[in-house]
Design a binder for these strands. Structure first.
Lengths: 161, 161
DNA sequence: TATTGTTATACTCTATAACTATA
DNA sequence: TATAGTTATAGAGTATAACAATA
């Protein structure tokens, strides 16, 4: 068989670390998603997590409150795919740090309207800037078009959950 | 402003659940990755997790051993981004269930060559078939070309970890 | 009756440190 | 000295159940 000829097999895809062949695993969206998420987690940790002592879920919670002031715990729990007791715990922690405030809803006294404090809003804004910049630097192998395509495909995928 | 005219704003993207606006969050690869992963986790749970009482890491571990017979714990730990003590625990569990076997390496007596039992190999094959079929059904909104593009982009991303 | 949110509690998974054996 | 793998143990995160208050 001629090297590089028509019969040449493409190189078998390998794991990003550990140098193992992926075989059929490489065709599973769930697997590739998990592998790619490791890269995303590293960017988060380096740009935001360590600097502000913040978990991904804490940042996302605050970013969603910033974009949706007055939203409820239950809506946030659904958006973040965490249980009700967990969202209580995360909000507790952020409230103790002075970044999130609970206000009793005027129309439904069971509900709480969630808001960010000024410090919380500043924190989210800075963290978001750092993440956007950090992703740009870390994923510079992707063109702008590839980035946009990836975001759209991921969004489409997420709608199927 | 004319509805649908040149000045119309695109609809603000919203969270897949909870119906909140995503704002800048929607442009973060890390965020969209996490949201999409929820969909992937559901497919895994429904097709494999519940049926075989298997965690994602357990399935992936076995699939990598199947594709790389004789590989070492440390290579698998790197590929899966888990620590050495954790890989020991996962292999312990799979060995107790009779799906993974450890053999002492003949060339380096510190190392163990990992292999699947016949039952383990059958399990991985069936699980992989179910995952491929399950993803096809769950993500039928994606064309074949979009699927291929997504896999390639995710793979590219994962190389940056 | 159903929903919002909380508390209590147990479980799973992960991480760190210390260790053995081998290179 | 460095590496492969294990054990012990503590910590972080998650889930379930039971509850109070309100709709």
């Amino acid at each position: 068989m001629a090297v590089g000829g028509a019969d040449a097999q493409p190189a078998a895809p390998r794991t990003p670390a550990g140098d193992l062949t992926e075989a059929q695993l490489g065709d599973l969206i769930g697997y590739q998603l998990a592998q790619a998420a490791v890269a995303g987690q590293r960017v988060f940790r380096e740009q935001v997590g360590e600097r502000f002592d913040l978990r991904p879920v804490e940042y996302t919670l605050m970013a969603l409150i910033a974009a949706n002031p007055g939203s409820s715990s239950s809506a946030l729990a659904q958006a973040l795919a965490v249980t009700a007791p967990n969202i209580t715990m995360w909000i507790d922690r952020l409230a103790e740090r002075g970044w999130v405030r609970r206000r009793q809803s005027s129309t439904d006294r069971r509900r709480q309207d969630l808001h960010l404090s000024a410090a919380g809003a500043r924190l989210v804004a800075e963290a978001t800037d750092r993440l956007i910049e950090g992703e740009r630097a870390a994923f510079d192998g992707l063109s702008g078009a590839e980035r946009a395509m990836l975001l759209e495909l991921l969004h489409k995928l997420a709608r199927h959950r």
